[in-house]
Amino acid sequence: MSREVIRVDNIGMRFNLMEKKVDNLKEFLIKLVKNQIRYQEFWALKNISFTVNKGDRVGILGLNGAGKSTLLKIIAGVLKASEGEITVRGKIAPLLELGAGFDPQYTGAENIYLYGAMLGYPKEFISEKFNEIVEFSEIGDFINVPVKNYSSGMKARLGFSIATIVEPDILILDEVLSVGDAKFKKKSEKRILDMFDKGITVLFVSHSTEQVRRICSRAIILDKGSLIADGPVDEICKLYEEKYIDEIKKLKKKKKKKKKSIADTKSAQVNEPASDETGEDTVLGGEASGAAKEDI
């Protein structure tokens, strides 16, 4: 059971932020001659190391910009890390943006072959599974219509059906899967849960500790590109909640207090009788008393 499927070894990802974007030759040459090409280094990930064993379901937690998606892209092979080594054993299915690889001019049927080929499946395999894909996606007769005429739900359904037709060794989920209507959502969730039962390895990115608790068995926290915690899901989720969510709540409370105090001083200046309440209430009270006067 404890076969290692993903090994991330001291990964670092550097982006060169050009202070001013240069994307034409003239500007580039001028700046090159003047020696003005300067980059601002930005490390989206730094010194990340962890291993994932077969059957692990790892939740990746972190605030916006913590480097979660960058890490997933590196594992999926889309991005190449600037530093470190990464080894992945087995087939990866990225359920990132479903249907992104469709050609709008192509019909659904043609797109099944194209998208399947993109995911690296051989032709015979796709032909074999073709009916199953069409059936699962519930596209019906629309399969011979160009995809540009599909609704976004249909596209997502077809994309999901193709991407999950084979049982991958590693499934990458970015945020929650919301495919199609409630009925299809249930069906797709069932398919993913079935995969879990078969011991698939999952990498799941989310902000929500509730979702991570439900899906994952293990979690890691990324903060500004560094791995700061790794462990069983409950422990890590608790830590995450304490560290970030409570902090946010505190911040919100502080803001509210500030607002309130401003409102208080305002109402105090107006010298309304209901100075304890917020500004809105005062206005309402004023209107009500006005209406009452008219009635008399």
Binding site: D103, Q105, Y106, E110, L114, A117, Y121, P122, K123
Partner: peptide, 21 residues
């Protein structure tokens, strides 16, 4: 070898779509 079918599919797509419609 793994992706030669994709090469075939993309080539076919370019030809098919060039004159479609």
């Amino acid at each position: 070898k793994k992706y030669r079918y994709l090469l075939f599919e993309l080539t076919k797509k370019n030809i098919k779509l060039k004159y479609r419609r």
